[in-house]
């Protein structure tokens, strides 16, 4: 599938933002993270900026961005519509929670509950994003149970790294931030490897034989057009296996290995160095996750390519 930058940026940025909102409210509810107004201001600005920039970016690839509001109407059947509804619904509790955190002394049970509702809606939005892809039977690399797990774990991982950097920047150190980040990275790495193993070892349900219904060895003699058509440009994107293997290694190194090491190093360093290393971990992980998401599209093969000479999809 054609890796469109707007969608790669949207899914990674909003995933990190929703992960941060979720962890801010969980850590605050667990009284691990003090409800420091300045930390809240920085945290929610980062989270909302990531979410909002992602959502806006996702509308850029539309043919008619001015009609994007219509996408909220078909939540009964469409995961894309559900994603739109939940992403907007999340703003309400998350916004109230952020205002309460930053500008008021409101710290009761209702405050914590508002935060938890924001966390649940955040994760629900991430799930909807994943299900847009996981519900497409036409793409074997997406239509499997690993996809929502990958989206959840990477959202929490990037959120945890952001939280760890944020807390360190404000001089708050707690084993919970460190361990959440470290465990989230390891879990995300294992999940992503399992995902890659799954798509490498299982064939898609469709073949050139089922696509055409013809019996025998089928090869494309003539394409319908002399030039590439929309389907080939959008669905026919192919990445060489050796390039994909290199990029996977890069995604693992930048997305998982480096952040684990940097976070460990930060945990052993004096506060100022710790904050700098934690921020560096976020930036390196961002590169890794962007490569991971680029591969998620570039490696996905669409069933329609079977009509254009692909031997598997």
């Amino acid at each position: 599938m054609h890796p469109a930058f707007s969608v790669i940026f949207f899914t990674t940025a909003s995933g990190a933002g929703y992960g941060l909102v979720t962890l801010l409210s969980i850590m605050q509810a667990g009284r691990v993270l003090p409800a420091d107004p300045m930390l809240g201001l920085a945290g929610f600005i980062i989270a909302f900026a990531l979410i909002t920039a992602g959502l806006l970016s996702s509308t850029f690839h539309l043919g008619h961005p001015e009609r994007a509001w219509r996408a909220l109407s078909q939540w009964r059947s469409s995961w894309l519509s559900r994603e739109g509804v939940f992403s907007i619904a999340t703003y309400l509790p998350a916004g109230i929670y952020a205002i309460g955190w930053i500008f008021t002394d409101w710290r009761g049970g209702l405050f914590t509950l508002t935060g938890m509702i924001a966390a649940i809606l955040s994760m629900q939005t991430v799930y909807c994003t994943a299900m847009i892809y996981a519900s497409l039977k036409t793409i074997h690399a997406w239509s499997n149970r690993w996809v929502p797990i990958v989206y959840f774990s990477l959202s929490i991982m990037t959120g945890a790294l952001l939280l760890n950097a944020l807390a360190a920047a404000f001089g708050y150190f707690h084993a919970a931030f460190f361990w959440t980040a470290e465990i989230a990275i390891v879990v995300a790495a294992i999940v992503k490897m399992q995902y890659w193993r799954y798509i490498d070892t299982t064939p898609g349900p469709s073949t050139a034989e089922t696509a055409t219904g013809l019996k025998g060895k089928i090869s494309l003699l003539e394409s319908p057009h002399t030039q590439e058509n929309y389907l080939q440009k959008e669905m026919g994107y192919r990445i060489a296996r050796k390039h994909a293997a290199k990029l996977r290694q890069l995604a693992i190194a930048a997305g998982f290995v480096a952040p684990v090491l940097l976070t460990t190093l930060a945990n052993m360093s004096p506060p100022a160095t710790a904050a700098a290393l934690a921020v560096l971990a976020v930036l390196v992980a961002a590169i890794g996750v962007l490569i991971e998401r680029w591969l998620f599209f570039a490696e996905a093969k669409h069933a329609v390519t079977l009509y254009y000479g692909a031997t598997s999809a």
Partner: peptide, 27 residues
């Protein structure tokens, strides 16, 4: 009149029946 041109229908169709008109921004 209501298509936003998100192309998701073309991803969902295994047969390649959907076309995106890039001039008009609709499927």
């Amino acid at each position: 009149d209501t298509c936003i041109g998100c192309k998701l229908c073309s991803w969902a169709c295994p047969y390649g029946a959907r076309e995106y008109d890039q001039d008009e921004g609709v499927m």
